[in-house]
Simulated scan of single mutants.
Amino acid sequence: MFDILLFLFESYFDIGSYPDHDKLTVKLSAAGFEEDDINQALAWLSGLQQLTRDAYPENINRSGIRLYTDFEEQRISPDGLRFLAFWEHNKIITPIEREMIIDRVLALDRKNLSLDKVKLIVLMVLWSQHEDLDPMIIEDLLTPVDAAHAH
């Protein structure tokens, strides 16, 4: 499924959005993606489209430190949690965006989601919110963790 998300971002970033689900299914099938992966990605994207800033109380942006539940800590790797905290602390993402990212991580129902996958989810959430994404942020989010340590 993550390959599909990356494909969508790379294919439709300049346009700002991707086609409706029927057209997207055809395009993804033609690109060689498996039907199960396509269905999973489309369901995940549907949930992403339903996320809006208005769905979260504004006071989240003025709250203190976010404490994670045991369930959330099982789903997001320690590196992923540190990454989210660092980006929030440095005001790259807002607390509401953090909650949107956590929502999409939990929707995957996977344990110990790696930093690379968390970064791709961050990218998709910011893109879905029509953020004006700085090229340096995009590069950071798309650079695999192993490549970053090689320098």
Rank of each mutant, 00 (worst) to 15 (best):
P144V: 07
A43R: 14
A147Y: 13
F13N: 13
M124H: 00
T143E: 07
V118I: 14
H130G: 12
I15Y: 12
Q74E: 11
L8A: 04
E72M: 11
L24S: 07
L28D: 00
I60E: 12
L113D: 01
L108K: 03
D103R: 12
T25W: 05
N61L: 08
F9E: 02
D140C: 09
L48Q: 05
K111R: 12
V125A: 00
I93W: 00
I138E: 03
D140V: 12
A30V: 15
L120M: 07
K91W: 11
I93G: 00
V145A: 08
D134A: 13
V125M: 00
K111L: 13
A41V: 01
E88C: 10
M1Y: 06
P57E: 07
G16W: 06
R110W: 06
K119H: 03
L6D: 10
E99Q: 12
Y56M: 06
D146K: 11
I101M: 06
L106D: 06
D36L: 10
L106W: 05
L67E: 09
D20N: 09
S77R: 06
D3I: 00
I121V: 15
F2G: 01
K119N: 03
Q50I: 06
S29F: 07
E34D: 15
L84E: 04
N90R: 14
D109M: 05
D140Y: 15
L141G: 01
G16H: 08
I102H: 03
N112G: 04
Q49Y: 08
P135F: 09
I38R: 00
D132M: 11
F2V: 00
L67A: 12
Y18V: 07
D79E: 15
I138P: 02
M136C: 07
K23I: 07
H149V: 09
G80H: 03
T143K: 08
A147H: 12
T25G: 05
E10F: 01
Y68V: 02
L108P: 00
L5P: 03
R98Q: 15
S77V: 11
N59D: 14
H130S: 13
L106Y: 07
D146C: 05
Q50Y: 11
H21P: 03
N61I: 04
E58I: 11
A150F: 10
G16L: 07
S29G: 15
K119M: 10
D14F: 08
K27G: 04
T25K: 11
K91S: 14
L8H: 04
E58R: 11
S128Y: 01
I15G: 09
S29Y: 06
L51H: 04
V105R: 00
H89S: 14
E10N: 15
K27C: 06
D3A: 09
S128G: 14
G64I: 04
L6W: 04
K23W: 06
L141K: 02
L142R: 13
A55N: 10
L113E: 01
G32L: 09
L28C: 05
K111D: 13
S46F: 13
R62T: 14
D140I: 14
T94F: 03
L51P: 02
P78M: 08
L8D: 02
Y68M: 07
F71N: 11
I76Y: 02
A148S: 13
R53E: 14
V125N: 00
N112E: 13
N39T: 12
F83M: 13
K111P: 05
G80P: 07
A148M: 12
Q40W: 05
